[in-house]
Every structure is written in C-alpha cells, then in structure tokens.
Design a protein around this nucleic acid. Sequence first.
DNA 1: AATAAAAATGTGTGCGCACACAATATTATT
DNA 2: AATAATATTGTGTGCGCACACATTTTTATT
Lengths: 369, 369
Amino acid sequence: MEKKNFRIKDIAHASGVSVGTVDRVLHNRGKVSAVALKKVMEVLSKNEYKPNLIARLLGSNRSYRIAILLPDPDQDPYWGIARLGMFQAENEWQHYNIKLVTFPFEMLHKHSFEKAAAKVLESRPDGVLIAPIFYHETLPFFEACHQKKIPFVLFNTNIKESKALCFIGQDLYQSGRVAAELICMGQSLPAKFGVLHVDEDLEDSVHFLEKEKGFKEYINETFESKADVVSLNRTSSSDFSFKKKLANLVSDPHLKGVFVSSSHGTTTAATLLKNHRKNNVRLVGYDLLKENTEYMKDGIIDFLIHQKPQQQAFLGISCLANYLVFKKEAVHMNLFPLEIVTRQNLDSYVKLSEQKENGQNVTYKPVII
Amino acid sequence: MEKKNFRIKDIAHASGVSVGTVDRVLHNRGKVSAVALKKVMEVLSKNEYKPNLIARLLGSNRSYRIAILLPDPDQDPYWGIARLGMFQAENEWQHYNIKLVTFPFEMLHKHSFEKAAAKVLESRPDGVLIAPIFYHETLPFFEACHQKKIPFVLFNTNIKESKALCFIGQDLYQSGRVAAELICMGQSLPAKFGVLHVDEDLEDSVHFLEKEKGFKEYINETFESKADVVSLNRTSSSDFSFKKKLANLVSDPHLKGVFVSSSHGTTTAATLLKNHRKNNVRLVGYDLLKENTEYMKDGIIDFLIHQKPQQQAFLGISCLANYLVFKKEAVHMNLFPLEIVTRQNLDSYVKLSEQKENGQNVTYKPVII
DNA sequence: AATAAAAATGTGTGCGCACACAATATTATT
DNA sequence: AATAATATTGTGTGCGCACACATTTTTATT
C-alpha cells in the first residue's frame, strides 16, 4: 500500500553488498570489482532508484554565492523590477544556502561594466547572472568564466557563442512584430508609424534594433511597403535634434502609431505625446512600470508588451541554483511569452503582482511559467 | 564570513538549556518552567530562528494523498491539459510523497459528480482539488470536508462561501470584457456581435454567463448600446434550432465578431465559421488547444484568451502540497492574468509549452507566475 | 525525613545520503 | 612463504529536526 521509496540501503541489501559499494557504483567513484558491479547493476536495472534529494541536501551543507552583473537599478526601473525578482528567488532558496551578491554597472558606460565584471571575477562566485548588453566587452568575461568553471546565465540579451548555462529572455524580433501587429490592427493607408529609442546606446546594444527590425518587417508585410516607418533616436534628455524630429513626426496627420523600444522610454514617450495632445495616436511600449500603467489607464498608452523582468530574474536565479544545488541542467533557451497588456486585462496583471509583493504566495516548490 | 544558520542546538547553547527544552518551547508541547521559558524566549527574540525545512522533512516520512475531483478529461481537452499540469506537479513534489488520485465525473451530469464526490470522501484524502461546476451539489461536499478537516482548493469556479484553502482561476467577468475589447478594436457602427455557448449547462454553471455579462457590458459602453449582441446556446451537436439561429447570425452583413465562451467551443465555432466561409468576422475564443492554434494560423481565429489550465492545475496542487507538507497557508485568491494570444505572439506561447513538455525545465524550486 | 508523585529537563535515535576511514581480500615482491 | 602493496569492501558519522524515552529536579504526602 504505502510503497516506500527504494533506498541505497535497499539496493545494497538486494544485491548482497554494502551501502558503500552501492555508493561507489552510483557515483562511480572508487574501485568496484566486476562481480559487485554486475550484481548492483542488475538490481538497479530491475528497480528504479530515485535518490532522495532532501536527504542528499541535508548532508552536504555548503553554500553558494551567485554574482549579479546587471545595470544599476537606480538608473532604470526595469532593472529595479528585475532585482526584485532576484531577491524573491534568494528568499525562496534560502534553505539551500544561496546568497546573492550584486555588482551593478552603469548602463551607458562600457568602462563601468568592465570594472564591475572584473570585481565579479575577483569575488570568485559559484555562478553569475549577467545582462551582456555590451557585446565586445563581455566576451573576455565569458572566457574567464569558462576557465574558472563558473557557470553563468544570460539575461535579456542572448550571445549564442557564449556557451552559457542558459539564456533567459524574449524573442526580440518577434516582440517587434507583436508591437506592429497591435499598432496595425484596424488601421488603413495612408499611414505613418514611428519607432522611438530613448537614451539607448544603439551602437553597442543590438537589443533594440532587433525589435525595430521585427516591427518594420511586419508593417511592410501588412501594408505592402506602402506605410511610412520613421525611426527616431533620442541620445539624451536634452537632445534638440530629437525634439525637432519628434515634433515633426507628431504633426503628421497620417501618424497612426508610435512604438517605443524600452520600458522607461515608454514612459517618456507617453509624456511627450500627452504634451503634444496626441491621443489619437496608438502607443505601444513595454512593461508595467507604475507610470506606464497609469498612462494606460489615462488612455495615452494603448498596449504594453510585458517583458516580465521580475519573473525572468527569478527564473535566472532558479536556474543557477538548480544547477549548483541539484546539478540540474537548465533548458538552454528560455524564451518568455510575449504578453500583451491592454486596458481591460491590465488589472489582472497588476493585482497579481500585488499578491506576490505581499510575499504570501511564495512556495517552496516550482511553478511552470 | 560564512554565517551558519542558527539552529535549535545554538538556541539551546545560548540559553543554557537542552535542545529538548528548546523544542518544547518552539512547538509549545510538554511542560517548561517559567525560568527556562524566559531564557529561551530571550535568545529567540535576539536571534532569528528559521527552522531548516529540509531537515524537518527528512525526519517525518509521511505521505499525502490529494484527490482530484474534476470533469473527465476525455470529454473536454481543457480538462486534459489541466490534468497534465497536475501530474507535472505530482512529479515535482515526488520527493515530498504527494500522491494524486483522480475522480473524474461527467461534465453535464450532476449525478455523476455526486457519485464521484462521495467516492472522494470515502477515500479519506489529505486534500482535494475540485472544480465546483455544480453549485448546489457541491455545498454538502464542502460541508463534509470541513467536518473531516480536509483542506480543498477550488479550481476554475469560485464559491466564496466555501471557505476553501484558496481559489485558482480567472476573473470571468473581466475575461468577457477583454474579449469584447479585442473584438471591438477598430470596429465601427453599425455592428452586430455574437456570443456562443457550445454544449454548456448554462442552467447550473454560472461560469459562462459571467463572461457573457462582461462581454455585453463592455460593448454597450463602447458603442453606447447601439451595437447588437446576440447570444446563442448550442445544447448538443444535433441542436437544429441552434444551427438555424447561427446561419441567421452569420448571414448578417453587420456581423463584426463572434465570442465563444469555452475552449472546445472555440474549435467548434471556428469549424462552423470556416464552413460558412466567413473569415472577415473576428473570432475570439479560449485557450491554446491544438485545433485552436491551427485555426489561428489559418486566420479563422483572431484572438485567444489563454486560461492556462495547465499552470492553474499545477498551482492548485502546489498550494495543497505546500499546505500539507510545510503547513503553509496559500493566497486565498489566485487570479491568473488574462493573457491575450494573437498570431504574432502565438509561437512564443506554443514553443514555451513544448519546452515544458520535454520536462527539462522542471525545477525543484518555485517560480512566480 | 523518607518516600511517592509530578514536573521539568536531558539524551538518544532515525530519517537517507555522502563521505571519510577502517577492515578485509587480493595480488605483487622479495 | 612471508611481507608489502594494492584493490576492494564494510562501517561509522554528521547534516538539523522531531519525537520517544531516560534522567534529574521539584513538590506533595505520609
């Protein structure tokens, strides 16, 4: 009735050897005679042995340090939310002795990144969670990690040749296509659309250009290249050339929609459009920042694509922790769905995150995304 | 540096008593002198003690049976997917000795439900996951559970007065509003919309009427009650009256969209609309059943609201397991976000579920939803 | 004051596994 | 054949907690 688990002890008993020998066979450490090996293997082939992870864990009482190499959350709320997810994960994994150490760097300065990366290596962590937003500067870091056998998880930006433990993020090209789909829905020619990049280092981070590519391609497919797509790039908050171009774009009577490529940029764009009193222009942006949800309720923002930074970060830490604690390999590509938020389903998202903030639903066991 | 966890042993040492006494204080069992109590409490107030759940678990080696009281998955793929999520959860929790026992009942027969419910009680489970689709028939079952102190989790349909451990589902009214929002987007008067209920027991399950209510209210708000909304209800696959009404509806040139209230109904409706060669009518339905995703790629279905049955079921089991194993109270209301699936983000959802099916990403630790 | 009863406290064991180390069996060397 | 060297196998311990049980201290009773 109550089928007890098949333990090492049972294997030993069944094959007429000691638990020590079974242990050696299971982990192939130490020497085992051919005879003993055969006996044990026979028993193993007849009974499924699932090691009791709880017990295994109790014995080895080591702790793990995970280094967090992400942009400074004070400079961009997106990263602030991500950080939240990490600390939630840390809390979940507390019994497994997972500690996080953060190494923030400045989003627009490669130098700052390089310094932080050096510090990470110096700290000799057991694992790293990294947002490799600067391609060239990150490669040597990966090299060093491989040499030191430090597993790392990529976050947000994928670098395929990095041989990371896994990548966690979204399909950026497809993300642009979703944005375009939403912006095109029910629209007709003549039409003009804007793509806005706000304070991004487009030179070095391909991230945003991928989104733009998907966006443009979908629009060209839909309107057979007859729609006009203009891409604007603000370099700083005092970028005059941008302001001029934007005013120009906004004054165009055929302007049907604007797509912003980042979460904080969405807030900026919403403010600008509101000031221009253009609320017949459809605005598509990213993430449920507080400001964005308010602009959505206001009717300024029409669609938000939810990147789920919090959940992504949580999963990132979980992947590393699983690997370190349970030696469990992660799925190499962990693409989050491109979730569409509108005025009508916004609350169902916001309320959810409020529940989580209360920390009540923190479980000791995993949930699929 | 390596701050070790503060254990019972440490408390005992710090307060100059034995671990036995500390144990008695912590669990207030047995007698403890006022002096000893005070000493221990003092130490406890100065140091945070977090019991090591791993160790606690290892000792007590009991197992738990969770009864699953859901509609027969063979009759509706929705429940099949839900079942999948449960078994995934069972797998995740295997080391904690959580066993599932299923008690399927027929969706349209109260009697079948009552019989299954009786069997559940007879089996004396440690917890129950239940879809209370028949309101009146479920109440006595809840009563019995309370008497026998069996915790239960509600699934899909909420019955507030049941005092369940928690409810897992979606806001159905709002779900209807989301459907309406999607169906209205870019549409103009004159307009007619259809609501389809396929093979549902509308008398007894309020479930679907809630969705209809939200749908209608949003449309009336948007078109100032000038749009026509027709509700059709198929009672069986050979319902002639329905066929006639549907033909009538579909032939209306002002028909702009159709909303179907269930996942399998969405497939049915898509087939019917395809046969009527009406693919200029916007179709909004539920869930990523294989047929539905194919109809979406075909261009027949325009939007799917993802109810995430698999994830809901997974969470349901997890809530019960957490409660049983760790004595952890669940969030009482667990509303899933109303996720919108379109042609452009469909793949990001489907690929994800494929990843999960491979079972690779099964973690030992939880992820927020 | 001696003993019994009750109260309070301390000790020991097992949960399943990993790993160190002790013990035994086998083979090599002189 | 005796000893050393090596190969193989078995035993013991700790991880942190819960719980059973043994021991000691205090209080009640005669």
